[in-house]
Design a protein around this nucleic acid. Structure first.
Length: 699
RNA sequence: GCAUUCGUAGCUCAAUUGGAUAGAGCGUCUGACUACGGAUCAGAAGGUUAGGGGUUCGACUCCCUUCGAGUGCACCA
């Protein structure tokens, strides 16, 4: 629609002697209830036209109609100038632009971009959170490719550290030589099993230490600074408990009967400290509230929450203190000491440890490879943290020389980001070893050295927002020219109704399990519809996989990345409505019609002169595909593509329902509608491919 | 406590980046030629965009503030 913008600029110059740029012209699609396809917002022009928005719109409209021959007419409603483009133009668009094979892919722009995603730890299998990460990363890479970038997909594997040592140690102690072969388990699951085992054993070793601290006030295991720390935390807990007791005096006088009989019982047991106050809030789940209006319950809930807020806050603070104590105490367990030793041995290059590490990692990699394959994602470049964790020290030297960093008396190196609203941040330990951010500084440099990329995208969860903010800021302060091209694609966590997923506690939705379940659901649904009678067994399996993964992928990608996602394992992912299978179905149906017609794509030329509203809408929607691709790349948001494709499928279905294709009265009209259908199927397939979703020919 | 993200129909999500009467799906209710493929289509009901202020021709969108939810604030990674 550039010609409309150009004409508007010309209109401003000739009618009002004012120079404006393309950015000053707000173009949007005309709302369905008005006539026309393109709308110019005229309010901004009033300043220099010195006329009412309506009059300005009328004048510009008349000018544009006169200037551009494909403009058939216009109308002005309030400050909105709606322009109608001729049907001939839209038909031309369909045949020339939309149907061309290059539609929706931009020519190479000469820029390189690296997309780092997945980045798993090698001590446990992938879960739903990783799936979101992988799909986002893959889709963003595909979208950038379509925009003309040269894309490198990278995976920074976190293959070293205390977490792997935990799995290794547990396997060594309790594994009895189990292997993926001997157990028939996928390697990553086997290693994950021992990670969970470690945690269980650790808890067992921890409890006598904790009881020594709490019950006997026995600190013999700890050195003086640890002892001081523990005593401080215990002091705080005592203080918080006193605060609770004080609060209880008031609470005891309250009558909870307002909130039902369940609340009375629960509050009594909370007063006796048998249950936490937090669980008193669950009293509304009781059946006595079944017949009461939700609004009333909501109000009561809020009232109760307010009354108990002090207590629940205090409880939370106590929990935090206890966690701190646990952290200190844990370091005295035999298991954790051994795991630490193992890490040191690894760093020292101990052959036995290294060999165990290599073996267990190889199990995990085989498992990951299977999961990645099923998920349909891949990588061009692997980085391993075991190789990069020592990087970054030369950057520290560079920073010190440039006086971006400073050294404290104990030898540790810091950067002061107070001027940027952040804190002081450690970049090198006093013993000269790297911290997390040191490695990341080094790895960023390495990536640039390897590929001289113009942009580098990190697909990492939003819990690391602060880390990346600091990382990028440091690189900018060091004067790295490429630091401007760094971007943290931060996405929200995937939560379960019960809260956060924690692999140690077993509250995770496993990636492999979930994919299998989706396939199974697809099978059940398809069999119910009974449309696959003539499919071979292999075709069926392929179809269930395509549909199941389509549902899952679409479900995760249609939501804006930064929003957190709630996944309820008890509610299966839909196959109807705003879903992947809906779009896949639309594609399959078009293919079926085309096949019946024996349609030959690319056969040119018809004499259709006029379009019906639904046909025009469809061409209009199709023509917006490149814009959606650009926008998706600019915002790094596959959700834009997902919503566009849905909109397209929906628009097509409306057309399909209203207009006969094979039974069209006229052969010319029939050919035209076939062309329109074929173009739609192609764009749907292309759009879905950008999301990593395949569309079946039949389903 | 400080920082940061989010809050839109009962539920899950949109809203062309500051534009018109805030749109879809699920769920509920009502319809669609003996299906060009019904995993579809048409219609109804459902909203004080968490509350309050401000900026302006115009605010879901920007600013301030209150409330609520998440996350981060280690010489861990």
């Amino acid at each position: 629609m550039n010609f409309i913008v150009d004409a508007t600029i010309k209109a401003a110059k000739l009618l009002y002697q004012t120079d404006i740029t393309a950015a000053d012209v707000t173009l949007q699609q005309t709302r369905k209830e008005f006539e026309g396809q393109v709308t110019i917002v005229t309010f901004p022009f009033v300043k220099f036209s010195r006329k009412s928005p309506e009059q300005t719109g009328t004048e510009i409209g008349a000018f544009i109609q006169n200037e551009v021959d494909v403009v058939a007419g216009f109308n002005v409603i309030k400050g909105f100038l709606n322009i109608s483009i001729t049907d001939a133009y839209w038909i031309e668009q369909l045949y020339q632009e939309i149907s061309s094979s290059s539609f929706g892919t931009f020519p190479a722009n000469g820029q390189k971009v690296m997309v780092e995603y997945s980045s798993p730890n090698t001590n446990k299998p992938l879960h739903l959170g990783h799936i979101r990460n992988n799909l986002l990363g893959y889709a963003v890479a595909e979208i950038l490719k379509a925009n003309g970038y040269d894309v490198i997909k990278a995976n920074l594997v976190n293959d070293r550290g205390i977490h792997i040592c935990k799995s290794m140690l547990a396997w060594q102690k309790f594994g009895e030589g189990e292997t993926p072969e001997s157990t028939g388990m996928k390697g990553d699951h086997l290693v994950g099993k021992y990670y969970v085992r470690f945690d269980r054993e650790l808890k067992a070793q921890l409890s006598p230490i904790l009881s020594a601290i709490y019950d006997k006030k026995d600190f013999t295991l700890f050195n003086s600074s640890e002892k001081l720390k523990l005593q401080t935390h215990i002091g705080t807990i005592t203080y918080l408990e006193a605060a609770i007791n004080k609060e209880l005096i008031v609470i005891k006088l309250l009558d909870f009967s307002d909130f039902g009989s369940r609340a009375q019982i629960l509050s009594k047991s909370a007063i006796d400290k048998n249950i936490p106050w937090k669980s008193v809030l669950k009293c509304f789940d009781d059946e006595e509230f079944e017949n009461i209006e939700e609004k009333v319950i909501d109000k009561k809930k809020k009232d109760l929450q307010r009354i108990l807020k002090h207590l629940t806050d205090l409880e939370e603070k106590i929990q935090k203190e206890k966690d701190e104590i646990k952290d200190v105490a844990q370091n005295k367990t035999q298991l954790l000491i051994q795991a630490q030793q193992m890490l040191e041995q690894w760093e020292a290059g101990d052959t036995e440890v290294i060999s165990l590490w290599e073996t267990m990692n190889s199990w995990v990699y085989a498992g990951f490879a299977a999961t990645y394959k099923k998920l349909g994602v891949d990588f061009d470049q692997y980085y391993y943290e075991s190789k990069t964790y020592l990087l970054g020290k030369d950057i520290i030297e560079e920073g010190l020389a440039k006086q971006v960093f400073f050294k404290k008396d104990d030898g540790s190196v810091w950067i002061d980001l107070a001027a940027d609203g952040l804190d002081e941040k450690l970049v090198l330990r006093s013993n000269g070893t790297s911290v997390y951010i040191t490695q990341d500084l080094g790895t960023a440099q390495l990536k640039y050295n390897n590929y001289s990329v113009d942009k580098s995208i990190y697909v990492v969860g939003n819990e690391q927002d602060y880390h990346f903010k600091v990382l990028f800021l440091i690189l900018q302060k060091l004067g790295k020219s490429w630091a401007r091209g760094l971007f943290h694609l931060s996405y929200g966590m995937v939560d379960l109704p019960s809260g956060k997923m924690k692999s140690r506690e077993g509250t995770v939705v496993d990636a492999d399990d979930l994919m299998d379940e989706m396939e199974q659901t697809a099978k059940t649904q398809t069999e119910q519809l009974g449309k696959t009678a003539d499919f071979s067994e292999e075709e069926k399996q392929q179809l269930y996989y395509t549909i199941g993964m389509g549902a899952l992928k679409y479900f995760l990608l249609k939501v804006e990345p930064k929003k957190r996602l709630l996944f309820d394992p008890n509610e299966s992912i839909d196959f109807q409505g705003h879903t992947g299978p809906f779009i896949q179905y639309t594609h399959a149906r078009i293919k079926s019609v085309l096949k019946r017609a024996g349609f030959n794509f690319g056969a040119k030329g018809t004499d259709v002169k006029e379009l019906d509203a639904v046909e025009r809408d469809l061409i209009l929607t199709l023509s917006q595909f490149p814009e959606a691709i650009m926008q998706a790349a600019r915002d790094y948001s596959p959700a834009i593509i997902a919503n566009y494709v849905y909109d397209l499928a929906k628009t097509y279905n409306k057309f399909y329902q209203e207009k006969p294709i094979l039974k069209a009265d006229d052969e010319v009209v029939k050919q035209f509608r076939l062309q329109l259908s074929a173009a739609t199927a192609k764009i749907i397939a292309k759009g879905m491919r950008l999301l990593g979703i395949d569309v079946p020919e039949r389903m």
